[in-house]
Design a protein around this nucleic acid. Sequence first.
DNA 1: TTCGATGTTCGTGAAACGTCGAACAAGCTA
DNA 2: TAGCTTGTTCGACGTTTCACGAACATCGAA
Lengths: 119, 119
Amino acid sequence: MRQVHHPEVGEISLTAVMGALSDPIRVGLVRVLADGCERGWGELRAPVAKSTLSHHLRVLRDAGLTRTRQEGTRCFVTLRVQDLRERFPGLLRAVLTAADEQDVGPQVSTQDTPRPTVA
Amino acid sequence: MRQVHHPEVGEISLTAVMGALSDPIRVGLVRVLADGCERGWGELRAPVAKSTLSHHLRVLRDAGLTRTRQEGTRCFVTLRVQDLRERFPGLLRAVLTAADEQDVGPQVSTQDTPRPTVA
DNA sequence: TTCGATGTTCGTGAAACGTCGAACAAGCTA
DNA sequence: TAGCTTGTTCGACGTTTCACGAACATCGAA
């Protein structure tokens, strides 16, 4: 399809990351990817049209939160856990903890392994 | 002028906070207020019209990041450090560290004239 | 080569955002 | 009372965001 751009670790902007995390669907996506494992694009489930999902994944990618890898016609998405830890120590953990607590973006899941509901 | 609304600690939404922190000027304001001390509205300096500054302070207040107190015709603003720590442990520190590192919102400052210390 | 699957991009609206200046409201002060 | 100070609100403007369906590009399979 097209080679996409990923910002370098040093280029990841705080305000861009904050903006990316200001939408419940995107926070839901981050939660799904939180374990650092790669997920297939088509595996992701969100209550929006696929063009909209593509848009959200693009925002996350452009902000430097995720990395997209292409393989044939398929895409795989990863949360840039290590890069984020390096650039913003403590931020990811704080966000994920709060997101779990408030159950942000609950309708986002993966086809195979739905996220367990937090007690 | 008007009684403003401040969300309770338990009502502070993660996505609202992230959205509030997605603008450099607002991050600059948070940096200025980071020590937890109260600042006078008129003491704040930012490269925008006062109506715009009022808008930004409103966004911060509505998101639950700051508290506004009125005294006569003047307003005083505080960062809700304790509330934020309680609601989002580790978040504020991570954000401030990154904001300092990237020098976000550098044009925001306080007028460094002596001001009445508020107890 | 043709077909189907997979994401991206485009075109289009509706809504939200950031910005400004002007007008306003509330409280001091002369 | 009048006038000044302080900050909010309003209306306007242009930009950006989010949403959708349709069209497109690319690759693997038939």
